[in-house]
Amino acid sequence: MLTYILRRLAASAVLLLVMSLLVFVGVYAIGNPVDLLISPEADQKEIERVIAALGLDKPLWQQYLIFLERALSGDLGRSFAFHTPAIDLILSRMPATLELALAAMLIAIAAGIPLGLYAGLKPDSLIAKSIMAGSIFGFSLPTFWVGLMLIMLFSVHLGWLPSTGRGETVALFGVQWSIFTWDGLRHLAMPAFNLALFKLSLLIRLTRASTCEALLQDYVKFARAKGLRMRRVVGVHVLKNIMIPIVTVIGLEFGSVLAFSIVTETIFAWPGMGKLLIDSIQVLDRPVVVAYLLVIVIVFVFINLLVDLVYSALDPRVRLAPGHAAG
């Protein structure tokens, strides 16, 4: 178990190294952030002075070594654009993204699993067919387009929900959360639903497929033959068995929700870390891009680990082999 975790971590460290190198070379190849940040009225000497002040005058390999050296002591550098330590910048934006992703995931799970279960149990009913048609629809709609449609409908035409931004926040454990205020929830509703739509469809389809498959299994047939009521068969045997793939997918998809929040955050002006990434790429704010990747890698390692643990807890057949990951 421990070796397994260690191997995972080592692999992620390698990945991080590769990614950071890629970002360094890439940003270097694209251009100089100073060209973008400095006032156009600055003259040549002024530009050179700023380049030197940001440490961008050194050769690339030297810049990278300096970065590595500092990173090992926990300093990922300061943002070129904000001058704040890049990691602080990311962490200050993280709660907003986390609550958006959690809310989206919650919506997807709360609606997706029951709908999928129903569609799997009564595959030929009209409702089941509409659910499946709807899921294909949700699967195919471009997120950014839906986001604007939602704003048009609920904010502009109906005036029910605020169009963009994050609502009032309250501090809890020293972090600002908006899910605990009414205003915050109103702001959260549309972006969370927008982000959830794709995962909702995915979960419906997955649950239905797993249910269909589970119903064909011998243990279900056996349970039915034994005279167990359908409700018990579904509630205990089917549900327990379909949870394994679903939990895995939920875990993995949570990561993808975090990533896709970039799009939703852009549309709804949600001050999360995805929006920060896009903005940072636009001004070539290298320390922030690298720090974002680091944070994301850590979050993902954590999520994947959690998924594996839950997976092995749910399914005793699964052993966490040190050789390669499950799946």
Partner: peptide, 15 residues
Amino acid sequence: SFPSILIALVLLAVV
């Protein structure tokens, strides 16, 4: 274990 959009995003930002 990483979402496709993120990898593509970083890659395109770089190239």
